[in-house]
Design a protein around this nucleic acid. Structure first.
Lengths: 237, 237
DNA sequence: ATTTGAAATTTGATGCAACAAAATGATGGT
DNA sequence: ACCATCATTTTGTTGCATCAAATTTCAAAT
């Protein structure tokens, strides 16, 4: 065992400094819980959050509740409308445009890198997820559809091996998540995403980076078209 | 004044929800101060940070100090080596590779968008910044060079009009910042960046998106080449 | 030298009270 | 109905004490 690995706990295989297993603090759990609520659409756009209400809902004191809220504001998942007013932001068309442009760049990059690294087990898992999406569409279980869709995308992105990239993409999904869920089932009902996913799967099997990127970009764009029309309809109301 | 704008303080011109002027809380100032120290290289990689030491250095209590540290960990600017050990991370080659790939995608995008939006005043300001870079190189004032270089890049990026994109890019610079400064003046001495900046300027004047993107990408790549050789030299020491 | 282990110290997490500021509600006048 | 003004309540922020856990120190043994 060399000197560096004693002092710094590095992963021998890559030489990369590996973040130690996170101590599951209350602040961490509060953050994860709020984040999950946002992505799942339990917190609707416009809803006001206060430190004390979050603390009470999570059965913790104000300190970890404030931690969670502060972090989510930093990520853009919550916004300050006033000095003492934090709300779940409504998705504007301008915000959706910007986020979509960034998503195309980053998720395209992740998809491209993943194409050369996916293992056969990954393909199988993706096929299972696609089955869940299809079944969910048939049985009108739209929550399942959204969940499986998210898992499908992020399984691919994780295979890029770029953890920072995945983390950034997560913050982007976090920003459109509330509106996403606010507008479903109108959103999830569409089946246009299915063929894009199939193209992505085929591209992954062939290790064809360009094809996978194109499929993911198409998926993002078709989602954008549907979301933007719903958003602009709401905006001029 | 319509109903929504009373309750929600929206920016009429874009319809975008605009974050209210941030209350300059101690936590906010502590965060900004630490961030600045990191980008300026006052905190070297490997240096250990504790809540109490930061609190003492900033003349505040532990609460705002902890706020700042927690947020910076969330952004990847600080890392947890142990449950109670946060340090300024050393830049590994793998991390540099990943960050560079993301930078090429995002800063390229920002540069492209900015090309169609820059005003003549912006060009003038960029030329002044380039002068500062040139003078700094002549007079061996490398801190000035790094500062002006950062201002040059971010003035362009801000002109993309994509605030979320700029914020993400800032977190990327924050992650390479400490190593950047740790390794200068070796880094700043090189003049290869100058011609890239001139190409970018010309592209901006012509509103040639592709040219500006190419110039910025070249600048990032040439910086990568120099940084990576220094990093790998240090890594196998 | 290096390692081991235990004692001593330092550390992050958490809850809470106090305070100033902001948001909310009530009131009255037009 | 509408709006200004004031009183009330709610709210974020901050500092601090406490505690369990992690880190560091140091000495003894190999």
């Amino acid at each position: 065992m060399d000197d560096a690995s004693k002092r710094r706990r590095v992963d021998i295989s890559t030489g990369e400094i590996v973040p130690i297993e996170r101590h599951e603090s209350l602040g961490e759990r509060a953050y994860a819980s709020l984040k999950d609520s946002l992505i799942r659409g339990a917190l609707r756009p416009g809803m006001k959050l206060t430190v004390r209400s979050v603390a009470q809902a999570l059965h913790v004191s104000t300190t970890p509740a404030r931690d969670a809220i502060t972090r989510l504001i930093g990520e853009g998942a919550l916004v300050n409308l006033g000095p003492k007013t934090v709300v779940v932001p409504e998705l504007t068309l301008a915000a959706l445009d910007e986020i979509t442009a960034i998503r195309l760049a980053l998720e395209g990059l992740a998809a491209e890198k993943a194409a050369t690294k996916v293992a056969p087990e990954d393909i199988e898992e993706l096929e299972r997820l696609q089955e869940r999406i299809n079944r969910g569409l048939d049985e009108a279980r739209y929550t399942d559809v959204l969940d499986a869709n998210k898992d499908f995308h992020f399984l691919i992105y994780r295979r890029s091996g770029m953890s920072r990239l995945v983390a950034i993409v997560e913050t982007l999904w976090l920003q459109i998540g509330p509106a996403f869920n606010d507008l479903y089932p109108e959103f999830a009902q569409s089946r246009t995403g299915v063929s894009n996913h199939l193209f992505a799967l085929r591209g992954l099997q062939d290790h064809d980076s360009a094809a996978v990127r194109a499929a993911i970009e198409n998926d993002i764009r078709s989602g954008y078209r549907r979301l933007s029309s719903l958003v602009s309809a709401r905006q001029e109301r």
